[in-house]
Computed example of a mutant assay.
Amino acid sequence: MFNLTHPKLVTLAEAEGFGGTTDFLEAYALDGIVPAICMAPDCDHTADLEPDQRAGFCEACGRPSMKSGLVIAGVI
């Protein structure tokens, strides 16, 4: 099941300059490196990571909380 309205996915799509999450997913669906966002409530740090990343290291807050936009949306 896809989740295109998750607040962190919306924030990530906006940070990448997209008007919506659908456009974001269409742009990155087949890429080898995709935007990811920190899932910690008090951090919105973004970075380019692997499409299947679920617990990447956040350079801003130091937690293993980076998640790919494709994972957040439920594509992967």
Rank of each mutant, 00 (worst) to 15 (best):
R63F: 01
D52Y: 13
K67F: 00
M66F: 04
L70V: 07
P41E: 08
A29K: 12
L49P: 00
T11S: 09
S68V: 06
P41F: 04
H45L: 00
P64Y: 10
S68L: 06
A47Y: 10
P7K: 12
F18C: 05
I33F: 12
A55G: 09
I37P: 01
T46F: 03
D52Q: 12
F57C: 01
T11P: 00
D52F: 10
D23G: 13
I72L: 15
M66V: 03
K67I: 03
F57P: 01
P35A: 09
D31G: 05
L12K: 06
L70N: 02
D42T: 05
P64M: 07
H45V: 00
P51S: 13
A13L: 08
G74D: 07
S65L: 09
I72E: 02
K8R: 13
I33S: 15
A27Q: 15
G74W: 11
V34I: 03
L49W: 04
I76N: 06
K8N: 04
A15P: 00
M1W: 11
E26W: 07
G32A: 12
A29E: 09
Q53N: 11
T11A: 13
S65Y: 01
A60C: 08
G56H: 01
D44N: 15
A40E: 10
D31M: 11
G17F: 09
